[in-house]
Every structure is written in structure tokens, then in C-alpha cells.
């Protein structure tokens, strides 16, 4: 399966990269790990005149903690390097767990976290958990930089809020506060390396009385973009999370999602699985936060 020819540009500084992006505009695609882009090229879904390889840019592959205590993942950090990093395994273990569920070891060796987010694929595993963890991205351009919540990054089917000339440089994941718990559950019944039929992430933080004072839920595979389940969140915020309450609230997700039936399940099935896996994710996040919590659902 040969590719259409393209020019291959390898900037070694951000300035050079921005100049090439300005020069080639929409005729060029940015190349990071390439696992998603190569498939698009092979299937003719994109036919760029030039690829701008980002891998020679300095300082985009770090995995470290920033002064504010947040995990900072350079956009070019591969899934595998992040899941292997002792720092991540110790302090953001749910992130390492989630990454181990992505595709196959081979793909994780190649695919980068920045590329994953910029691809804007609603079926990917990292976005729901990053939504639940309230992560943000640092975006750089010729004119400066801005921080953008992951919650505002995905705008439509394979579309993001990045503007022409902007480069996603870093993902920032806040530290986990005391009495909090988070998890990503992937329901992929066909094959381990497949996309999820439904993926559900939950973050909960409890107050002393056991009430839920902070909660975010993210979903994959059920809408044109990765989504928060805001109605479900609103119904649970500030509550003592009992099993019947979580069950009732999870049913509200129905109005917030728009799954498409495909080889991984019918639209109706995905709706039901979204409810089920939200319930399970909340229960597991509660367990991790140290609550008695609702029992198994």
C-alpha cells in the first residue's frame, strides 16, 4: 500500500517549524508518531503536499512535574514512555493503566500523546480520562502560547480547537487531591487492540462526610467527539453516592450522546453500555477515593 509522494520537512527549532507551517498552510500535515496520519494517507483521507516532521524539535518529549504539581507530558512523549514512567505509575497510576489499554505495544511505541489529542478521534482512550482529570494542553504559535482545557479541545468529528499555525506542545494533568479517585474503563469485547465500543472515565473527590464534592465523567465512542457526561455529573454533584442514585443519574446520559452503530455495536447497544460503564466507572472511582460507595452494578 504505497503512499502518494510528499515533501518531507524537518524543522529543528520551533521558529523554523512555525515558518514552515505558515508557508505551507493547509497543504502540510504535522507528523508526530504517524500511526493515525499514515492510515489517513493510505486511505486517501488526507493527501498533503508536505509533511512536517516534529520529531527533531527539541524539548517536546518530556515527562515531568511542573512547579504547580501538575504532570507535564511533552506532546511527543509516546504512549509507551508515559505508561512506563515511574513518576506516572506512582502518582497518576490510572493514566498508566489506561495507556496499557491503547491498541498494541507496537502502536504505543510509536503513537504520541500530542498526536493522539490532535487527531481528535472520538474513539481514542486517552481523551475521556484526560477530560475526567481536568487536564489541559499548552499550545504554542509564532505569537505566543495559550493554555486550553482538554474540555474545549474537541470541536467536531476529527476537528480540534487548534488554529492554523498552532502546535500542541504539552499536556498538563493536575495532581490528584486527597480523597479522590479516578479510573478509565474500556469495553472492547471483540479484541484487546480494538477501539472501545464504549470507554468511560470517572473522577470523584469526596468531602469528609462522604459526599461527592467534585466529579467529572468522560466518554469515548458515543458522539462525534470525546464528551463529558454533564447531566450525569450535575445529578451526582454534592450527593452521597448510593447505588440507586448513580443508576438513576447514569440514565441521564441518554440525552447527551449520539452514538453511531458500527461493527462494535448498534447505537442502542452503545447507549446501554454507556450507562453501564459510567456506573461501573463511578463505583470504581469511589472505591479508589476510599468510600464505601455503591456496590457492584
Amino acid at each position: 500500500m504505497a503512499l502518494w509522494p510528499f515533501d518531507y520537512l524537518e524543522p529543528t527549532s520551533p521558529e523554523e517549524c512555525f515558518a514552515l507551517m505558515a508557508e505551507h498552510g493547509s497543504e502540510a500535515k504535522l507528523l508526530a508518531g504517524g500511526t493515525a496520519l499514515m492510515q489517513f494517507l493510505k486511505q486517501g483521507l488526507a493527501r498533503p503536499r508536505a509533511l512536517i516532521n516534529l520529531k527533531r524539535l527539541p524539548g517536546l518529549g518530556g515527562i515531568e512535574v511542573g512547579p504547580e504539581g501538575a504532570l507535564r507530558l511533552g506532546a511527543l512523549a509516546t504512549h509507551r514512555r508515559i505508561e512506563d514512567a515511574p513518576l506516572v505509575r506512582e502518582r497518576w497510576p490510572m493514566l498508566a493503566e489506561m495507556l496499557q489499554l491503547v491498541a498494541s505495544p507496537r502502536i504505543r511505541n510509536m503513537a504520541t500523546i500530542g498526536g493522539n489529542l490532535c487527531h481528535g478521534d472520538a474513539n481514542e482512550d486517552p481523551p475521556p480520562l484526560l477530560l475526567a482529570l481536568d487536564a489541559s494542553v499548552r499550545v504554542i504559535s509564532r505569537v505566543g502560547e495559550r493554555l486550553l482545557p482538554v474540555d474545549g479541545l474537541f470541536t467536531d468529528f476529527y476537528e480540534t480547537a487548534l488554529k492554523p499555525g498552532e502546535l500542541l506542545a504539552e499536556v498538563r494533568v493536575p495532581p490528584l487531591p486527597p480523597r479522590s479517585g479516578a479510573v478509565y474503563l474500556k469495553f472492547a469485547p471483540k479484541s484487546r487492540q480494538d477501539f472501545a465500543t464504549v470507554g468511560a472515565a470517572a473522577f470523584v473527590r469526596l468531602a469528609d462526610a462522604g459526599r461527592c464534592v467534585e466529579l467529572r465523567l468522560g466518554l469515548a465512542g458515543v458522539a462525534p467527539t470525546p464528551v463529558r457526561a454533564r447531566k450525569v455529573e450535575a445529578a451526582l454533584q454534592g450527593q452521597l453516592l448510593s447505588e440507586p442514585l448513580v443508576r438513576e443519574a447514569a440514565a441521564l446520559v441518554e440525552d447527551e450522546i449520539d452514538p453511531v452503530g458500527d461493527i462494535r455495536g448498534s447505537a442502542g447497544y452503545k447507549r446501554e453500555m454507556a450507562k453501564l460503564f459510567l456506573r461501573r466507572a463511578v463505583a470504581e472511582a469511589l472505591r479508589r477515593a476510599g468510600a464505601a460507595g455503591p456496590g457492584p452494578t
Binding site: M1, Y8, M38, Q39, K55, A103, S104, R106
Partner: peptide
């Protein structure tokens, strides 16, 4: 498969398994 799913094209690059059907030679 030619799209990184089947693993038949697996090679090691600097010790890491990759799908050589998704990797550019120049890389």
C-alpha cells in the same frame, strides 16, 4: 493489513517493536 493492526510487519527500531508499514523509512 498495511494499517498497523496485524503485526506481520513488526521490526525493532532501537530495540522497540514498531509497525514498519506505518513508519516512514526516512524516520
Amino acid at each position: 493489513c498495511g494499517i498497523g493492526v496485524c503485526g506481520a510487519c513488526t521490526v525493532l527500531v532501537d530495540g522497540q517493536a514498531v509497525s514498519s508499514c506505518l513508519a516512514l523509512a526516512v524516520d
